[in-house]
Nucleic acid binder design. Sequence first.
DNA 1: CTGCATGCAAATAGTTTGCAGTAGC
DNA 2: GCTACTGCAAACTATTTGCATGCAG
Lengths: 141, 141
Amino acid sequence: MIQRRYSRQRELIYNCLLGTKEHPTAEMVYQWLLPENPNLSRGTVYRNLKLLAEEGLLLRMPFPVERYDACTEQHTHFCCRSCGAVSDLELEYDPELDQRVARSSQLEIQWHDLVFYGTCKECIDKKNSNQEEHSLQKEEG
Amino acid sequence: MIQRRYSRQRELIYNCLLGTKEHPTAEMVYQWLLPENPNLSRGTVYRNLKLLAEEGLLLRMPFPVERYDACTEQHTHFCCRSCGAVSDLELEYDPELDQRVARSSQLEIQWHDLVFYGTCKECIDKKNSNQEEHSLQKEEG
DNA sequence: CTGCATGCAAATAGTTTGCAGTAGC
DNA sequence: GCTACTGCAAACTATTTGCATGCAG
């Protein structure tokens, strides 16, 4: 394995992930850090996120756009189909499932992802108020 | 909603999905159909896969590369971290889970994805035979 | 010093889209 | 004949990579 070396950028990026529950994309991390670090480059953000995930410090989530999570304990996620935001759910992770699947197949199971899809509260509210607007316009027209 | 019209290409693409359990990517579908349909274009494949998924005839799976599945009944998947292949698992889908999460949150849940990650039999075998080669070389050297 | 890490820009992969021509209904 | 659908190519988004330089150990 390659000998890692300290870097201010890597620390910044990792702290950024530790300080949020938003499961950000590489681009989000870049945009958050840019104002205070005008020389930071996208390449560095991508490289370090990938590296931290390989080292097990971050979880990598293959949504249409790659997202990262500093919580390395497995847990379940919710993804809003309307705004794309990803959040954590309280539902406990069941490691027994992995063993069950491994036993009944020829496969070596490392972990599983459980992701719920639907609409988040914000988007439900937004949709409702849009509909109200529309019916108002109809009444006015 | 837009009035759909029959198209030979769309039928080809849909049949292609019905006839496989491989959860192919758009590119795979394109390459399979190309020999018999030299005029087919990637754009058409992408457009129709997206359209069929919107109509509920296909499942769209957001792996690092978008994959599609003609089985619209929810079921669990296995993804090999080594070769990237995606296959079905016997594990039953539990709709009760969706209701449980919906009740304990402010969220509207539509479905959930359960995906197991690990190594498939082929890749385990490949890894083992590679290791044997290496130790052989050591002994020879 | 050594060589890992960075910034930058170019390259790549996957996917979408604009447009002119084709073909269902 | 109307207009959805196609092929083609260009555009776009997300991500990776090559290279010269910077900096940790």
